[in-house]
Nucleic acid binder design. Structure first.
Lengths: 244, 244
DNA sequence: CGGGGTTTTGAGATGACTCAAATATGGTGG
DNA sequence: CCACCATATTTGAGTCATCTCAAAACCCCG
């Protein structure tokens, strides 16, 4: 796996939401002291742990999940390289969900404290932190909508589209192919389906020549058909104002 | 409907997330200039409108929703008296979802601009704004989990528990009865079920003497049975640190 | 009282589930 | 480089929760 662009992971993340001055860039990258390599499946923290830091994911994918008494697992969020993890838990004492790596990668932790420093002396970095959190929230809102009262076809189409859009945004999906290191069980736990049904539905998509999946790769053969199925509006990925 | 506590709606909302100094209280309530009465069903804004302000809901319930091409409506969020609406759209140019009143009420608008003022000169109010946004996000995350791969019984139990918890928090649910101005169609659109099935499920709960519903009122007869069914952890409503 | 919206009930259809077995795939050590 | 193992995916068969459509009952509001 490409250890993505050695430094300035957090600078690049924040830059998504607005431009940064040289001073602000310096300020941000000064925070990136430690880089922690992580293994596939390694948990970053568990639900209920004390929440004292957040981190950027500089390489590899991760996911936030909760386990329930009946043994089921639900995946709340998928984190892609360059994303910030745990920012939204800032006002809570404890983690609301567990987070684990989907594959080997690297994270860079930051104390929640630094966020308070931003609040105190950089309204620009504050606004961008707020924007990052709001963007994440918008993704969740879209997922609420697309999970409820939609068929398995629609849910899968939607998730693939979301991932595709996000990967394009960070330049990781070049053409219509992109890598998705999720098993069908992960899809199922993200979408609220059984893994068996995910398999069947992907097979139907393949037979219809809408998309292909081999190994960790997804190849979208008919983007417009998939978009139609997903009921997708790209609005989430546009319309971000440059935090004023 | 009781026009809730004339003033300082926003002060009370922010106080949920941490204590405020006298100066900060003054600062906040100075923002509450206009009070706009709203009618049942009245939209506050529509998806795609320009997003330039947010508001507190000083009386009445509201909901955020999206309409889809196939004619279905999905409800993303329910807003209770005292809640802030539209805060999370701060970094976006346009509304991500429509918001309308469920009943007559009153809102108090604030320009997004005021938020930037907080960022510039009050780290405390900034932290509390961030906390408010994160709390909303936590609610959404919980909803993602409880909507996917759960039975109609579990979904309905969960929603009622969420509403009950939130109303207790603001002192509007005294004993086990509380007012819920939602039709079964609203429940259905919130939970991703058909209204027919909502009706059947509520009937079963009534026969099992778990809860009763008459008119706009819910009476929880067996709270522990409902909590069990909901698979609820109250953690969301505890564990808010006093924003450091 | 009458009428529109909401809720309830019935009946039949179906999408997604579970369990179970067969097959494919990738990773590892000999 | 191959054989083997563990894991992931596919396929089959039967079941069940929830859906749709439709009609009846209910209930608030005027």
């Amino acid at each position: 796996m490409a250890m993505e662009t050695g430094k300035d992971c957090i600078v690049r993340h924040f830059s998504r939401y607005g431009s940064l001055s040289e001073i602000e860039r310096k300020r941000l990258s000064a925070l990136e002291e430690s880089r922690i390599p992580t293994e596939k499946g390694e948990p970053l923290w568990l639900e209920g742990d004390e929440a004292r830091h957040f981190c950027t994911l500089s390489a590899g994918w991760a996911y936030a999940y909760r386990h329930f008494a009946d043994g089921t697992r639900h995946i709340l969020e998928l984190f892609l390289p360059g994303d910030v993890i745990g920012l939204q838990e800032f006002p809570f004492q404890r983690r609301l969900s567990s987070v684990a790596m989907l594959e080997a990668g690297e994270v860079r932790p930051f104390s929640h404290h630094h966020l308070l420093d931003f609040f105190r002396d950089s309204s620009r970095l504050t606004a961008l932190s707020f924007a990052a959190a709001s963007y994440r929230q918008a993704l969740l809102g879209a997922r609420v909508v697309h999970l409820s009262r939609r068929s398995a076809r629609q849910r899968i189409a939607y998730l693939l589209f979301e991932l595709f859009s996000r990967l394009k945004r960070t330049g990781e999906a070049l053409d219509d192919r992109f890598r998705v290191p999720l098993s069908q069980q992960h899809f199922a736990d993200t979408l609220g389906l059984s893994s068996v049904h995910v398999s069947r539905t992907l097979t139907v998509f393949r037979e219809e020549r809408v998309l292909e999946r081999s190994r960790d790769w997804i190849h979208i053969l008919d983007p417009s058909a998939l978009a139609r199925e997903a009921g997708v509006s790209e609005s989430l990925h546009e319309g971000l104002v440059d935090s004023h």
